[in-house]
Design a protein around this nucleic acid. Structure first.
Length: 557
DNA sequence: GCCGTTTTCGGCCCGACTGTTTTCAGTCG
């Protein structure tokens, strides 16, 4: 069991204790333990048991519980409290704006035990009758539930990716690997996935019995064309049946509807069903156009580009030359500056932009002015040691409520570059969001605009922005827009990137790494950047060290 | 439950914001 899973156990235990009204300090220490465990630089499973107790925030009780988890994979105290709590009440923890205290009121006083009932209570205006609840809370809860329900059953690309090899192998063993084709949203590299889709060159009658005897998942839906199963983790597995020559099916399922319609219209004479090919390349050959990879099969306009042989040469994972946007133990990262830099160097990268949180982000141990100087001294020493690798002095400066950054010009000018991001007060009208963002973009110290909408895929909508105006302001002020590569963010959305780069904007695929492992998230940024047709020339983190330094000189005032 | 230039008991907490209050609890990043 890894630290993340251990932390999840303690976090849930803490929240459930709060819901049950147990001693809040006790609950808090389990919560703090979860917080600390998640940030540890080493895996608890590799720490000798007796040494667990000397870790900050881990005392006798927590230490013993960690050992219990490592040895049995379970936590009795958590199992007990879960047993005393209706599942729907636990599920309410997923609703943004509802914390343990409010959930306790919902459950104990309103006697509501499911999210469905809660939504109904909002519709009936019953929530606002209770202490601590009012009109706005009721409205917010209603919207948060609707957002949650819309995203139910949907998964992040990275979560699905983790299980794809096993499922593919398994299907290969059942049906023969040459008869199994991955398709759908996953093949298109979509950022969220509702169903994992495969085409199997078999009839339904043959698929079903094999699947059910081998591994009986829940059967959700069955038609002549496909069968949908639900896996243990909630992911839907959709198996299309097909005979020889599944190429046409593969083509249709690995593209947006808009693309397929436009394609058929553009090439009405093509014989889509050649009856032989398992791949879909022959369709492009027949059309006598460039092969369009599935990740680009989104819009009609891409077909025109393929006709003239002018598909973009999209960025690849190994085109990332440096890590831009990362955190160390100076703020809320798990690894020290030296560990982060050494790891980046060992991965063959040329530079690391260390951008710890700024002073307003107190929850993340953001850097007050005096600590900035100390950090810069450490960076200079490390740069001597790690040459020619280079650490850049940066900061992820909070965009305050009025759009200002949270340091003086004097302090801001000591950084090599500044990433400006919103971390507080995320609920905004478009007007307010635009005022804050535009003010930050116009700040002469801002180099990169970090995660520009603040969205968290499947859990939080971003604030509303006018993309065009932001692009315009960024171009005018020489500000780069981040493509935050964390699989939960992927913010800016790839759908807006093409327009941006056509106007001359640079993007930067940044992992926002809080630990060494976070560097690998760059890949997810690259996958969605490919969808937007981004070439390496349009991505700042693909610049070599020399190019990156030269770029900074051109934008520094 | 955790912790200790308040060290074995008694106090713990990061700070802003929101929405609810009419001085502050709850939530969030």
């Amino acid at each position: 069991m890894d630290n993340y899973q251990i932390a999840e156990h303690f976090s849930l235990l803490s929240k459930l204790m709060d819901i049950h009204g147990e001693n809040s300090f006790k609950a808090r220490s389990y919560g703090a333990a979860a917080f600390n465990i998640e940030k540890l630089p080493m895996q608890l499973s590799e720490v000798p048991h007796e040494e667990l107790f000397s870790i900050k925030g881990i005392g006798e009780s927590t230490g013993k519980k960690i050992i219990e988890l490592l040895e049995t994979g379970e936590l009795q105290a958590l199992k007990d409290i879960i047993q005393k709590t209706p599942p729907g009440v636990i599920e309410m923890l997923n609703i943004k704006g509802l914390g343990p205290k409010k959930i306790a009121t919902v459950w104990k006083e309103m006697e509501i035990e499911t999210i469905g009932e809660l939504l109904y209570a909002c519709d009936e205006n019953r929530l606002k009758l209770y202490k601590g609840f009012g009109d706005k809370t009721q409205q917010n809860v209603k919207e948060a539930i609707e957002f949650y329900q819309q995203n139910q059953g949907s998964h992040l690309y990275a979560q699905v990716e983790a299980v794809v090899p096993d499922i593919k192998n398994y299907l290969g063993k059942l049906f023969g690997s040459d008869k199994v084709r991955l398709t759908g949203a996953f093949r298109r590299q979509m950022e969220t996935i509702d169903e994992l889709e495969f085409i199997i060159s078999e009839t339904n009658e043959n698929i079903k019995p094999k699947f059910q005897t081998a591994f009986p998942p829940e059967l959700i839906e069955e038609t002549k064309e496909y069968i949908i199963y639900k896996l243990k983790n909630g992911l839907k597995l959709k198996l299309y049946s097909g005979k020889e020559g599944t190429g046409e099916k593969l083509f249709r399922l690995s593209a947006s509807d808009v693309f397929v319609d436009a394609f058929i219209k553009a090439f009405p004479k093509i014989n889509f069903a050649d009856g032989k090919s398992a791949d879909d390349e022959y369709i492009f050959k027949q059309a006598k156009i460039q092969y369009i990879p599935p990740y680009l099969r989104e819009t009609a306009s891409i077909i025109e580009k393929a006709k003239t042989n002018s598909l973009p040469e999209v960025i690849q994972p190994n085109d990332i030359k440096g890590i831009i946007h990362s955190h160390s133990t100076w703020s809320d990262g798990s690894h020290s500056l030296e560990q982060m830099a050494t790891a980046a160097k060992e991965k063959g990268l040329e530079y690391l932009v260390i951008s710890d949180h700024s002073k307003t982000a107190a929850y993340a141990n953001g850097l007050k002015e005096d600590r900035i100087k100390a950090q810069h001294e450490e960076i200079e020493k490390l740069n001597e040691k790690l040459k020619p690798f280079k650490i850049f002095k940066s900061i992820e400066s909070d965009i305050l409520n009025d759009g200002k950054l949270d340091y003086s010009d004097n302090i801001l000018s000591t950084f090599d570059l500044v990433i400006a991001s919103v971390h507080s007060n995320l609920k905004m009208t478009e007007e307010k969001a635009m005022m804050r963002l535009l003010t930050a973009i116009e700040n002469p110290h801002t180099t990169i605009l970090g995660h520009m909408t603040g969205r968290l895929l499947l859990s939080r909508k971003g604030y509303p922005v006018n993309y065009e105006k932001i692009f315009e302001a960024c171009i005018k002020n020489k500000v780069v827009i981040e493509l935050n590569a964390h699989p939960s963010r992927l913010d800016i959305d790839w759908r807006y990137i093409e327009a941006a780069i056509n106007n001359g904007l640079l993007i930067s695929i940044d992992p926002d790494a809080h630990a060494i492992e976070g560097f690998d998230d760059c890949k997810y940024g690259v996958l969605v950047a490919q969808k937007a047709g981004v070439t390496k020339e349009k991505n700042l983190s693909s610049f070599s060290l020399a190019e990156f330094e030269a770029y900074l000189k051109t934008v520094k005032n």
